[in-house]
Simulated assay, not measured.
Amino acid sequence: MPIGNVTRGTTGYNRLRRVDRWIAALPVLRRTDDPLVADVGYGARPTTTLELRDRLARVRPDVEVTGIEIEPSRVALANAGTRDGVTFRLGGFETPTPDGRPPAVIRAFNVLRQYDESAVVDSWRIMQDRLQPGGALVEGTCNEVGRVASWVTLDDRVPHTFTVSLRVADLELPSIVAERLPKALIHRNVPGERVHAFLLDLDRSWAVAAPLGTYGPRQRWIATVHGMRDRGWPVLHGVSRWRLGELSVPWSAVAPHGA
């Protein structure tokens, strides 16, 4: 039986472009001998699964994407059309794939948001157990138009990184991402928790970088990320990622106390 619950299924064109860009840059996608990607909980329509395949094919032309949904009518609708490199299957966190092949990457977006926090670790583990060696699980959430997003990237054993990705052109405060934190963190945005301190410093760094707004919001964001590093946060990557509105830190920097 599929593992999980039927979710609202909200979806939309271009909603997951930010996380898709992240997945396209994952080393495992480029080096694997079997570039199979699973999209767990794609929603009422297969739009974002089809977009995922198109985006990943630009860097890995032989990529295959399997969209997985727990609601049979959604799978039937998706299977009404055909598309090279894309299949759709009934299932949940157990991540059924063609011939049972382990995926190199699993994307699970806007799914666990609708579960209790207590379900997160077990759901992660079920999906992690399906990964290829060296594979990646990317789990997170975003707003309805995809301009505010955050996610956790895990391997087959542990979480590794936490990423915030924002459209900075009309950004007032980066802590708007508090509304779209992954389920593992959204209830931990309270004093005494690491993610709360992270968001406070992010807003402070954004404010300090305000004069750089003269040169454009992207320059202000890059300065904000530098500011986070100056405040002692173990910021990852470099300007090529930051200019996309991204900021990543090791999971340990924001992980809930006691986790």
Rank of each mutant, 00 (worst) to 15 (best):
P234H: 00
G213P: 03
D230H: 04
P217Q: 03
Y215P: 07
V235N: 09
T214C: 10
I222A: 06
R229F: 02
R231P: 00
G232S: 10
Y215C: 02
P211W: 10
T214F: 14
T224N: 09
W233R: 10
A207D: 13
G227P: 01
G227L: 11
L244E: 15
P256F: 06
R229T: 13
L212F: 12
G216S: 10
W221F: 06
A207V: 11
V225T: 09
H237E: 14
P211M: 06
R229P: 01
P250I: 04
M228L: 14
G227A: 08
T224K: 08
R229I: 04
S248E: 14
A210L: 03
W221S: 11
A209C: 03
I222F: 00
R231T: 07
A255G: 02
G238N: 15
I222Y: 02
R241M: 05
A209Q: 07
G258L: 12
W233A: 01
P234S: 02
R231F: 08
R231M: 14
H257C: 08
A253M: 10
G216T: 08
R218D: 10
G216R: 07
P217N: 03
H226P: 01
A255N: 03
T214I: 14
A209G: 05
M228W: 00
R231H: 11
R243T: 14
L236R: 09
I222P: 01
V235F: 04
P256N: 14
V239Q: 12
V254C: 01
I222E: 09
G238P: 05
D230N: 05
P250V: 02
E246K: 04
H226G: 03
R241K: 07
P211I: 04
G258F: 13
E246S: 07
A223Q: 07
V254T: 08
L212D: 14
H226A: 11
S252M: 07
P256C: 12
A259I: 08
W221M: 03
V225S: 12
T214L: 14
T224H: 09
V254R: 03
L236P: 00
L247G: 09
P211F: 05
G258M: 12
W233D: 09
T214D: 14
T214K: 15
H257D: 13
W233I: 10
W233C: 08
Q219W: 08
P217T: 08
H257Y: 00
W251L: 12
A255Y: 01
G213Q: 09
G238Y: 03
R241N: 09
M228S: 02
A209V: 05
A255T: 03
Y215F: 12
R229N: 06
H257R: 15
T214R: 15
W233Q: 11
G258I: 10
Y215Q: 13
A255I: 09
V254F: 05
L247P: 11
R220G: 02
R241V: 05
R241S: 12
A255F: 05
Q219E: 15
H257S: 10
W233H: 10
V249P: 04
L236C: 02
V254Q: 08
R243P: 02
G227E: 04
R220S: 06
R243E: 15
R231G: 00
G238I: 06
T214H: 14
P217H: 02
G258C: 05
R231V: 01
G258V: 09
V254W: 08
W251Y: 15
